[in-house]
Simulated scan of single mutants.
Amino acid sequence: MQRMPIAIQLTDLGADDLVRMYTYPAGPAEPYIRVNFISSIDGAVTVDGRSGGLGTPADRRVFGVLRDLADVIVVGAGTARAENYGAAHTDSHLRTRLHHHGFGGAPDGAPPRIAVVTATATLDPGSKLFTDHGARPMVITTTSASAANKQALIDAGAEIVEAGDTSVTAKGLKDALAERDLRRVLCEGGPSLFGDLITAGEVDELCLTVSPMLVAGTERRIAVSPNAMPTPMHCRHLICDADGTILSRWVRSHTR
């Protein structure tokens, strides 16, 4: 039986300590899918439809580290709209250093790409996702999505990737990322996309922040799907901040 790790105080950790604690497995042979979420103590994933109302300084600090380590940031279309997603803005010096040491990053410090999953390619070409300066966004969609929608997004600067006939499959998503050598995957939601990945058995780990507040209301949980797929996980670490924020990293039991 694996022992539960002792909680570590965030104030005891420097920037390099956090990088070491969240580094992806070395040289993953296929896309390794890490999911990052924040929830309230009572399980709410948003406040008034957005996750920002749950945020804390500790969560924002780790959020930045997770993005610095990733090759690609995958997000569902609903979350991209609700959170007004733009390009990822990361620490270019850190990403150059990570690449030098074989931990990902990029030789020129370039930021990770944003990949939005949408079965219908229904995104606003004028939104921040396409107008913000940064890496070229990917839109992962289906062969049945409107050709006009796809062309409008191509004209806005997106790379269109078809990864399924009428829905984006987990296999199609992984194959598309592998073809582009994007193996350190950070999925930032939403709950439906997370639920689909769990159901497909494709979640390698979850980084979960528990925000020190109660919300109630009708907010959803962090993962939803038509079918349950119990997936054993084990806790790699718990980090606590003085305001009560708890940051945890959970890895699938057969993942090394």
Rank of each mutant, 00 (worst) to 15 (best):
M1T: 14
M1H: 13
P5M: 15
A7C: 10
T11F: 05
P28T: 14
A29W: 07
S39W: 05
S39L: 00
I41L: 12
G43S: 03
A44Q: 09
L54D: 00
R60D: 11
R60G: 11
V62Q: 02
V62G: 03
L69M: 09
D71W: 08
V72S: 04
G76S: 09
A82L: 07
A87G: 12
A88G: 08
H93F: 05
R95M: 10
H99N: 13
H100A: 15
H101Y: 01
G104N: 10
A106K: 06
D108S: 10
P112A: 03
P112Y: 10
R113Q: 13
T118A: 14
T120F: 03
A121H: 12
L123S: 12
S127A: 15
F130Q: 01
M138K: 02
V139K: 04
T141M: 11
A145K: 11
S146V: 15
K150A: 12
Q151Y: 06
L153T: 00
G157M: 08
G157K: 02
G164W: 01
S167D: 08
V168N: 07
D175G: 00
A178Y: 02
E179P: 01
R180H: 03
R183A: 03
V185R: 06
E188C: 01
G190Q: 09
F194P: 01
I198R: 01
L214W: 02
A216I: 00
A216N: 03
T218V: 14
A223R: 00
P230R: 04
M233I: 07
R236K: 11
C240K: 03
G244N: 10
I246L: 14
L247R: 05
S248M: 11
R249W: 09
W250A: 05
T255K: 12
